[in-house]
Design a binder for these strands. Structure first.
Lengths: 336, 336
DNA sequence: CTGAAAGCGCTTACAG
DNA sequence: CTGAAAGCGCTTACAG
């Protein structure tokens, strides 16, 4: 069916080895021969067999990304796809591809990474959503697969890092709230994600420390990112507003913030007049709520490109430097 | 580094061929030998090399999905990720993976598919967003790669189909609008997507035919899915409402519908009292707008699983049957 | 039931 | 500059 290198070599009247060198732009082939081989390849519509090349080069040209999220949340968060799109853009420059697989939980993800490593299925791994006591780290350390991660602290195990300064991000948002006309909130609430995520823990700590330093009351609510719990926070936020004078709430992501806005709609309280609501992630979703959501925006596509570059560097040349991500800026809309 | 089949064979005291048979559960190996081989493999932590297996079996265990969408829209639409998640779920049962690549346009996508085929990079291809005169179809027909698509009509070229009855979907939505208290709209508008998409053309035709048959005035606006054009429709819809008594608008997807809602917010017109707004796709986004959006929901994850099954069947056993997708049902919310 | 050999389609030293 | 050979790590007829 498809033609092979042997066909091309025969057509050009040279050996397979010479044909290979000519086609790969290696030196040690005369210009005339190279031309003849290239023409023959073109003629036959020859393309190198992916599997054969991967086997002989012992490199797959593929980076793996396992995602331990429910299909419910993976689709809902814009962050994820924008990030992946950025990675792919960068990877396409070096003719690499991304192998994505959705798994039920981190345990399954760790197992998958281990298998990928053992099967030499990928040249490197992208780690998302780093966790406290992350089971994937020892697997990566053992396997020694080149790995890159976007996280708020160095993960060790030789993992190339795109570092996110969550403290600065939190500070930026708190400063925005403080600067509002009639600012000087005496109490601010933070609706955090599940505490097993490293970035959540870091954000929470930053929130509490900064508030304490400024003499602002800090209330933290925890969300499991599920819709069912939204009604509960609505009530809790209302109670915090009425009983403790809470006048602003920071929400971990924009989807949660939008849902909170819906909960608050029926209540006897106006956003942003009585209560400001802001999100720590931005997306188009923020523009279609009522009021539109103020959010901390960042260039997620660029982050994806940065991480891809880090991983390529690590896979090709060994230990890469640490890159610090742009912390982003507040996009003011109607909710604050 | 990683152990190979030779290591396992030596450890178990058998030949490579026998070890291979034992590990792959083939017949012609004594139970005792099989046990010894399996134990040796376990011992050494052996896993088959992906590339070697792909080469000798001439099958990659990978299906390819090229996406010709801007990273802007790929993230915004929930449909896409929910669909992919469904596919992956199904594929993971047969130990297959999805190779996804984002490309700038259909031309690039066609070129990529051609390359994938020539490199024997994938065992099959998933085709999304079928178009009028789709440049990918001849490529697939030529290459003969097993392909499956979700679309509103048979695409030929031996492509396995998950058929969506766009006419029935449109009818369902129109019937919902007709059944509203004070129904009997004299004019309905439809904001359609780019006409090069097959499903858009089909929806539009259905919209016009059904309206004509029922004596309802039909106005069609065309959107390129870009945000910049949203303000324009806002004005056009208002004009249709005031000048021609248009009292309902159907929007191609929920993101567009949500943006229309925002445009309409400042106007002297109430949704749904003066104008009903509904979307032909549903997602969590519909629940956070004000008012929440009535939408035509369907089980997109199930669609993904169905398409994956079709593709597996086609790749393994040749020509598969046609499956008709569930047309979905109206999820009534506040906007209609 | 088991082993030796050939083959999948490339790449890469090694001679000439 | 060019060719013949070995190797990447599996699978699969073919003998025995």
């Amino acid at each position: 069916m498809s033609s092979t290198l042997s066909d091309v070599a025969r057509e050009a009247g040279v050996s397979k080895g010479t044909a290979s060198k000519a086609l790969n732009g290696r030196s040690g082939v005369s210009a005339a021969t190279r031309e003849r081989v290239v023409a023959a390849a073109e003629d036959l519509g020859w393309k190198p067999s992916y599997a054969a090349r991967a086997l002989s080069r012992s490199a797959t040209g593929v980076f793996g990304l396992a995602i331990a999220r429910s299909s419910e949340t993976v689709g809902a968060e814009n962050f994820f796809m924008a990030f992946v799109a950025g990675m792919e853009e960068e990877l396409s420059h070096s003719d690499r591809a991304l192998l994505m697989q959705i798994v039920p939980d981190v345990g399954a993800e760790a197992a998958l990474l281990e298998r990928w490593a053992a099967e030499r299925r990928v040249d490197g791994i992208v780690l998302m959503d780093a966790r406290v006591d992350d089971p994937r780290i020892p697997v990566i350390a053992d396997a020694g697969v080149p790995t890159a991660a976007m996280a708020c602290e160095d993960l060790g195990a030789g993992i190339a890092m795109l570092l996110v300064d969550e403290e600065e991000r939190m500070r930026t948002m708190l400063e925005h709230l403080a600067s509002r006309a009639g600012g000087g909130h005496e109490r601010i609430a933070y609706i955090a994600g599940p505490p097993e995520f490293l970035h959540v823990a870091r954000r929470r700590r930053a929130f509490e420390e900064i508030c304490a330093a400024r003499g602002i009351g800090a209330s933290v609510l925890t969300s499991d990112y599920r819709r069912a719990s939204v009604a509960r926070w609505g009530r809790e936020i209302l109670a915090l507003h009425e009983d403790e004078g809470c006048r602003a709430v920071i929400v971990d992501n924009e989807l949660l913030a939008a849902q909170l806005l819906v909960q608050l709609r029926g209540a006897d309280l106006a956003v942003p007049r009585d209560l400001a609501v802001t999100a720590l992630e931005d997306s188009i979703l923020c523009t279609v709520t009522d009021p539109p959501l103020t959010a901390l925006g960042r260039d997620v596509g660029e982050n994806g490109r940065q991480l891809a570059r880090l991983l390529v560097e690590l896979a090709e040349q060994g230990p890469a430097g640490v890159v610090v991500a742009d912390p982003g800026a507040v996009v003011e809309r109607g909710s604050s």
